[in-house]
């Protein structure tokens, strides 16, 4: 009978090493929720490090938006490009960062087709850790997208009355809101069947909601019905809050509403995403 005899090329040589590596390694106390989430954030950063090209979509797209809106529409809408830049830069900041959140859902959907998710789900870790961690990692991408916009705006002549502090606060606020919103897209990412479907559904939602806001045009110029919608749109409130911070006259009310909206989105969609992830 041809019994298999491990040939010399197998592990024979380092058998001692294998034995030692296998010999029991005691189980440490469980990782804390924070440490588990941060480990997943680290994983996200490593992916960027290995494939830096994936940052192109968070840098090129915003640059395109700034240039297009300022020079293409600036003259027509506001009479001058300088004036318009001042009006829309906060709007473009919001739009670019929010568009980036769709990719969080796409990335999660792609992840699910890989075997590694089974390992994550079979580890004794805080259940939401993989999701919270990836979104922490993604927040760095949001931050990059936002920074690109602001740097480019400054280069094109944008000057803010809110100063550095105001601009950074606006950037921070937008990223916090994006973190909340991205839970909606991770939920979509777990429900849809393919990364492409997530992308389509995501943009079908985020596109109109962003454009039907005060990001690019003054709502007073709109028909009454639309104006009412635009004014109630949470994105308008976010844009107002960001504008206020950048212009140096922050509205505590707007900022409060934005933070509350982000909190509500997280409280509703984070548990939903976690449940779907565990079952997927």
């Amino acid at each position: 009978m041809n019994m298999t005899t491990p040939d010399a090329a197998t592990l024979g040589a380092d058998e001692e090493a294998v034995r030692k590596a296998i010999s029991s390694t005691a189980r440490p106390p469980k990782a804390s929720p924070l440490s588990a989430a941060l480990s997943f954030g680290w994983r996200g950063m490593l992916k960027v490090k290995h494939v830096p090209e994936q940052l192109l979509d968070v840098t090129i797209t915003p640059v395109m938006f700034v240039l297009m809106f300022t020079y293409l529409f600036g003259g027509a809408i506001a009479g001058s490009t300088g004036e318009y830049l001042r009006y829309i830069l906060p709007g473009i900041l919001v739009m670019s960062v929010l568009f980036t959140t769709v990719y969080s859902g796409v990335a999660l959907n792609t992840d699910l087709t890989k075997g590694v998710v089974d390992r994550f789900r079979s580890l004794p870790i805080w259940r939401p850790a993989p999701l919270v961690g990836s979104l922490i990692g993604d927040s760095v991408r949001y931050l990059i997208a936002g920074t690109v916009i602001i740097v480019l705006g400054l280069a094109l002549g944008y000057r803010s009355d809110g100063g550095v502090g105001g601009v950074l606060a606006a950037l921070g606020l937008v990223v916090v809101f994006a973190f909340g919103l991205s839970w909606v897209f991770t939920t979509i990412g777990l429900v849809m069947r393919s990364p492409n479907a997530v992308m389509n559904a995501g943009f079908m939602g985020i596109f109109p909601v962003t454009f039907l806001s005060n990001a690019f045009v003054d709502p007073e110029t709109l028909p009454a019905g639309l104006e009412a919608f635009v004014n109630a749109n949470p994105i308008s409130i976010l844009v107002d809050a960001a504008r206020g911070l950048m212009e140096g006259n922050p509205s505590v009310g707007d900022i409060g509403i934005v933070l509350a909206t982000a909190a509500i989105l997280t409280l509703v969609f984070a548990p939903l995403t976690t449940r779907l992830y565990q079952r997927a």
């Binding site: 994983r43 490593l46 992916k47 290995h50 494939v51 890989k114 075997g115 590694v116 089974d118 390992r119 079979s122």
Partner: peptide
């Protein structure tokens, strides 16, 4: 621990 049918390791790391 689980060693899945699709290798349970992260290809991008």
């Amino acid at each position: 621990t689980l060693t899945g049918q699709l290798a349970s390791v992260d290809e991008d790391l």
